[in-house]
Each structure stands twice: as structure tokens, then as C-alpha cells.
């Protein structure tokens, strides 16, 4: 019983997160403006990180947790530098 509940809830969570990632990618490709794309990237990596955590629960392995930590670190740095570029790269300096 417990195993079935865990199995199906993990499957459901993973499919929801996959759809969420697809939606973020959709906004990333559609834009319309650069800031929407950067925000799309931000949403994408947060969802990817959550997906990694669910993989961790599914397999019971710690390595996914570490991967999630690294994804969130790199995503943060990427988004901040892109935002900084949007602010500085276009007008007045």
C-alpha cells in the first residue's frame, strides 16, 4: 500500500514538474522581451531542481540532492549575470 502511494505520487509530481518545465521553455522561446526569456530560464532551473529532488525520493540516493544544490547555485549565478547584462548592456554607461 505504502509503496503504491509513494510510487504514484512521485510519478504524478514528476509529470507535473515536467509540464511546468515545458511551460517555462514555451515562455522562454516566445519572449516577447529579453527579460521574459531570462525569467523563463529562472523558472526552468527551479523546476528542474525540484524534479531532481523528486528523483532523489524515487531512488533514495543522495547524489540527486547534491545535483539539485549545484543546479540552483549555477542557475542563480546565470540569472543574476543575465539580469545585470540587461541593465548594463543596452543603454547609458
Amino acid at each position: 500500500m505504502s509503496a503504491a502511494i509513494l510510487y504514484w505520487s512521485v510519478i504524478a509530481a514528476q509529470s507535473m514538474l515536467a509540464v511546468a518545465m515545458a511551460l517555462a521553455v514555451y515562455r522562454m522561446t516566445r519572449g516577447p522581451r529579453a527579460q521574459d526569456r531570462v525569467l523563463g530560464l529562472d523558472t526552468l532551473y527551479v523546476n528542474a531542481m525540484l524534479l531532481l529532488l523528486t528523483f532523489g525520493i524515487e531512488t533514495g540516493r543522495t547524489v540527486y540532492f547534491e545535483a539539485a544544490l549545484i543546479v540552483s547555485l549555477l542557475g542563480f549565478v546565470a540569472t543574476v549575470s543575465l539580469a545585470k547584462f540587461l541593465m548594463r548592456g543596452e543603454v547609458i554607461e
Binding site: 505504502s2 509513494l6 514538474l17 511546468a20 517555462a24 523558472t43
Partner: peptide, 30 residues
């Protein structure tokens, strides 16, 4: 997984679904 007590399985399932549903709704709103 079969030895996990039922209450724990239900709690894990509840929070998993809650979290991923919120992430999905957030992306949908986005």
C-alpha cells in the same frame, strides 16, 4: 518502500503533490 508506515507515505505524497502542483500553477501563470 513497502515498509514505510502508511501515515508517512500519505504525508510524503501530500507534500509532493502540493509542491509540484504549486510549481505547475506558477509556470502556467507565467
Amino acid at each position: 518502500n513497502a515498509d514505510v508506515p502508511l501515515w508517512a507515505a500519505i504525508a510524503v505524497a501530500f507534500f509532493l503533490i502540493l509542491g509540484s502542483a504549486l510549481a505547475l500553477i506558477g509556470s502556467y501563470g507565467f
